[in-house]
Design a protein around this nucleic acid. Structure first.
Lengths: 220, 220
DNA sequence: GCATGTTTTAATGTATACGCAAATGCATAC
DNA sequence: GTATGCATTTGCGTATACATTAAAACATGC
């Protein structure tokens, strides 16, 4: 009942190492090396790698090792395009679902937290609350598959954002958008929820891609 | 250099068995059973199952075996929603890409084939050409990740369509939509390409879901 | 009969063994 | 110095062994 298998541990550990930069994008690692590092045999490492491969975090290439996927500016463009469409759909569906104000508390709280973080210049806290907002938004859209796809895409975005967070303009407009989306959902206005969120994400996309291209973060 | 591994073979074989109905939705199968059936050991079967699980075709549940995922009407609704958004995005991007008429030949051919099939009442040929049209459309959108997600979703749709193909109205309107989309792409009209395709898919969704619910194909 | 605790069974998760083939290094020829 | 063929190494794909542990079967008490 210690319910977490070695495969689970390997998945978490590898994700952690990837997001922390301990395993840099583009680097190769032999199955044996990772197995030793994680203190287990090759089998669970291979299975974990297979799962991470399905999510686009690594690529397994025979004899060259497990490669941590690089994320180019082009990748980020593609990913944001998908994210934009699917999150906007979720926003529309959430509006149609007719949630009560209490159902929407989590969203409101996330917005408030972003304001606080912004006032205190705590970008890390802001990013966390921003993530929380978008995660909850998608959850409210009530489409399990969509949630899963979006979370995979968001993982990729997180990798890019880690590097660009401190070089971009303070996201002041951002929260105004969030508020509009929340209001539209509360009012059951699917069209507005969709369109506002769509524009919001498209803006974010253009900004991030511009930064990535300017600084040539091809590896990350 | 007989480059195809047992894992590859297992993936193809299992997919084939799933789509053909040899492994019916909702049925459970032990790893050992499948391994015997495919004439290999458990290892490649497990790895194949892991991949198919990532695509939502099976679920691995400890001690209960590998379950072929059932697809409920609700699942189909969710899947079509995703498909609709992503294909429409692809249509818009294709329109923006400024393809020449010769680039769009494959699309035109698929449409022509659908007409022929319809005239000859060959629904199977129609379904094949329809698939071809949508696959090419997505490809023209030039977003590899999006293509991958869409193809996973389409796999699920295919399972449902197999059963409903012969009980629905002849898809006569369908090709008119296809033509409009093609024309919009040729003219570089992203908005129209997007909207027409969006409406097209939404219609298909409603029809399929209605059929599934009417006939209670919960298992499939 | 039904519920509860105990034994048995067996499917899985993981480790390990091993052959093959790809990559690497080396020697030789030009 | 470069190229070609051969030998060597080694990482991976797969099979297999085995301990763990959830589920099933069973027995026992009410």
């Amino acid at each position: 009942m210690g319910a977490l298998s070695n495969v689970d541990r390997a998945v978490s550990a590898l994700r952690q190492m990837i997001f922390s930069g301990e395993l840099p994008p583009g680097s190769d690692h032999l199955e044996t090396e990772l197995a030793d590092r994680l203190g287990m045999s090759r089998t669970p490492v291979r299975e974990a790698a297979l799962m991470l491969q399905a999510q686009g975090l690594v690529e397994m290439r025979p004899r060259r090792g497990i490669r941590i996927s690089p994320v180019s500016a082009q990748d980020m463009r593609d990913i944001y395009d998908i994210l934009t469409e699917l999150e906007s759909l979720a926003a529309a569906r959430a509006a149609q679902a007719g949630y009560s104000d209490s159902d929407l508390e989590t969203l409101a709280a996330a917005i408030a937290d972003m304001d606080t973080a912004l006032a205190g210049d705590d970008l890390r806290a802001w990013a966390e609350a921003d993530d929380r907002f978008h995660r909850e938004l998608v959850r409210l859209g009530r489409n399990a598959r969509l949630s899963m796809i979006v979370s995979v895409m968001r993982d990729q975005v997180r990798r890019a954002r880690a590097t660009t967070l401190f070089m971009r303009p303070k996201p002041e407009q951002s929260n105004a958008d969030h508020r509009k989306v929340l209001q539209a959902i509360a009012e059951g206005d699917a069209r507005t929820a969709h369109d506002v969120h769509h524009a919001h994400r498209q803006m974010a996309r253009d900004m991030l891609v511009a930064l990535l291209e300017k600084h040539q973060f091809y590896g990350l």
